[in-house]
Structures are given as structure tokens and as C-alpha cells.
């Protein structure tokens, strides 16, 4: 009797082990497959960017180009005016991300820690801002910044309202007032984070005579670094790739998303100036240019992501976004 239970236990143990081993294999396959699905298009883009047009229509060529060329990069660098637009986009995205990080943190801290009248209604307004698609206020925003005026001041001085199009002011104004791209989401995430922080430190600082702003700067900011990096990264990246507001406000100024959007057309027009034989833009050529341009636009982001990655994952984990 004793012996049979013993063998049964041994068997059950091995069965559990086998099950666990099988599960880890299945898990590995699933995760590898999904990672492949994410990475494969990136590899395709990379490999297409080194191909010449012949390779695209060659069915024997899949990933490794037969006619290796850097010509695409030359054309794309020129067509995008890459280094100048890179600098511009860097300044724009950095400025916007920093400004909106600062303003969203202040607002989120206000909502997380203090009681004030109409707080619930105002927070509902934050959520409302998240829900309203930007396309609804796109036209009024355009008109607002096209004929920009604060209480008629500019009209009195200049005789006419100022046009802020093709400047960075619309972006900076929106970032500073938390009405920019997905700022509602940032406020929400930061508020949840601040709510999860222990109150005791702030109370101690307050008892020791710190003002509320000083407490915020001295105590809250140092302990919120991973979350801040996350929000900064989100803001930076979404501004970097955003073609919605950039195509709205910047018509003549080349920044990366605008340049990327019009890349194949602008390179083509240069081609035809040379009296080239292309009467139409071939889809292969468009694809090559787009892929090369996308790679060029992504490289800075990948570097940034690799640098911030540790903070990013940590910040997400500690955000504790619960209901």
C-alpha cells in the first residue's frame, strides 16, 4: 500500500514536470513568433533600403539584396534635407516633451493630492480631452493660430492678428497648457502614480516648513524619475512621428514627419528635373524611398529607446494604473 502511493507520487511529480516543460516550450514558441512578427517588417525595411530597384522585382531576392547600393540613402538624405530636419525635429520634440512633462506633472500632482472645489468635474474634463478626437478641433485650432490674438493685443499693435503657422509656438502653447497630443493620458497616468506614493514623506516635509511647491520639487520629482522618463519618451516619440499637428501647422518647415510624408514625391520631382525617363513614379521606387526614409527617421528613436529602456519598463511597472 505504502509502496503504491509512493510510486504514484513519483509519477504525478514527473507528469507535472513534463507539463511545465511543455508549457515553457509552447510559451517560448508563442513569444518568439510574436517577436518575429514585430521585428520582421523592420528587417524588411532595412533590407529594402539597401536594394536597387531591380532587386524589388526579382523573385529570387527576398532579404539579401543582389545589387547592394547606398544610393537610396543618398537620395533620401537629400530629399528629406535630413540633417537640418533632424535638428529641427529634435528641438521641437524635445521642447514639447519637456514642457508637457512639466505641466502634466504639476496638474497631475494637483489632482492627486489636493482637495479643491469642482475637482471631480474638472477631472472628468481631463478624460473628455482624451476622448475627443483631435480632428474635431483641428480646423478651429488651425484658424486660431492662423489669426492668433490675445484679447486683441496684437491687432492693436500690428493692425492685424499674427499668423503663428510655420513657427513652433502652436506646439509649445499646446504643450504648456496640457492640450497637446494625448496629454489627457499623461495626466491620468501621472495622477495614478502620485496617488500610489506614500504621503508620509510630504507630510514630514510640510511639518519641517517646506512649501508645497518646494515639497513637489525636492521630494516628488526625485522619486518619480522612472515615470518621468516614460512620459518623456512617450511625448518625445509621439511628437517625433506625429504627422497630424505637424502637417497642420508646418507647411513650409521641414521636420521629419512632413519630410517623410512627401519624400517620394520630392525625390521624384528632382529625378524628372534631370530629364529622367520616369514618366510616373513606380511603386517600387516609392516603396524604396519610404522604407529608407522610415529607417532614417527611426534610427534616433531606437537609440533613445535603448538608452531609456530600463527606466521605461520600470516606470510602467511602477505606475500601477488601476481603475
Amino acid at each position: 500500500m505504502n509502496a503504491t502511493t509512493k510510486t504514484a507520487r513519483v509519477h504525478r511529480l514527473t507528469a507535472a514536470k513534463v507539463g511545465r516543460g511543455l508549457w515553457s516550450i509552447v510559451r517560448g514558441v508563442i513569444i518568439a513568433g510574436i517577436c518575429f512578427t514585430i521585428l520582421q517588417p523592420l528587417f524588411v525595411k532595412l533590407s529594402v533600403s539597401f536594394m536597387s530597384e531591380k532587386d524589388l522585382f526579382d523573385s529570387a531576392v527576398k532579404y539579401i539584396p543582389k545589387h547592394f547600393t547606398l544610393n537610396n540613402y543618398k537620395l533620401a538624405l537629400k530629399g528629406m534635407d535630413y540633417w537640418n530636419s533632424l535638428l529641427r525635429t529634435f528641438l521641437l520634440s524635445g521642447g514639447v516633451a519637456l514642457l508637457q512633462l512639466a505641466s502634466c506633472m504639476l496638474v497631475a500632482y494637483g489632482f492627486a493630492r489636493f482637495r479643491f472645489p469642482f475637482k471631480k468635474i474638472l477631472f472628468a474634463c481631463v478624460i473628455l480631452m482624451l476622448i475627443v478626437p483631435p480632428q474635431i478641433i483641428m480646423l478651429p485650432l488651425f484658424m486660431h493660430f492662423r489669426f492668433f490674438d490675445i484679447f486683441g493685443v496684437f491687432k492693436a499693435v500690428n493692425g492685424a492678428p499674427v499668423s503663428l503657422l510655420d513657427t513652433y509656438w502652436p506646439f509649445l502653447i499646446q504643450a504648456a497648457t496640457c492640450t497637446g497630443f494625448k496629454n489627457g493620458l499623461f495626466i491620468y497616468m501621472l495622477r495614478q502614480f502620485f496617488k500610489g506614493m506614500p504621503k508620509e514623506l510630504e507630510e514630514a516635509a510640510f511639518v519641517d516648513g517646506c512649501t508645497k511647491l518646494k515639497t513637489f520639487i525636492r521630494i516628488i520629482i526625485p522619486s518619480a524619475v522612472p515615470m518621468m522618463v516614460t512620459i518623456f519618451l512617450f511625448g518625445f516619440v509621439w511628437q517625433w512621428m506625429d504627422s497630424f499637428y505637424t502637417s497642420l501647422y508646418l507647411k513650409g518647415t521641414m521636420v521629419i514627419p512632413v519630410a517623410l510624408d512627401s519624400l517620394s514625391a520630392s525625390v521624384y520631382s528632382e529625378y524628372s528635373n534631370y530629364g529622367g525617363s520616369m514618366n510616373f513614379i513606380s511603386p517600387g521606387f516609392i516603396s524604396m524611398m519610404n522604407n529608407t526614409g522610415t529607417i532614417l527617421a527611426m534610427v534616433p528613436l531606437v537609440i533613445l529607446y535603448l538608452v531609456c529602456q530600463k527606466y521605461f519598463v520600470e516606470g510602467i511597472e511602477r505606475s500601477g494604473i488601476v481603475g
Partner: peptide
């Protein structure tokens, strides 16, 4: 309440 409104001011102006 004043401090809270002060912190939330950027949002209030923006909204």
C-alpha cells in the same frame, strides 16, 4: 484648495 488650483492651473488655462 488654493494650492490644488495653483497646481492644476496649466490645465485650467488650457481647457
Amino acid at each position: 484648495a488654493l494650492a490644488g488650483i495653483g497646481f492644476a492651473l496649466p490645465f485650467l488655462i488650457g481647457f
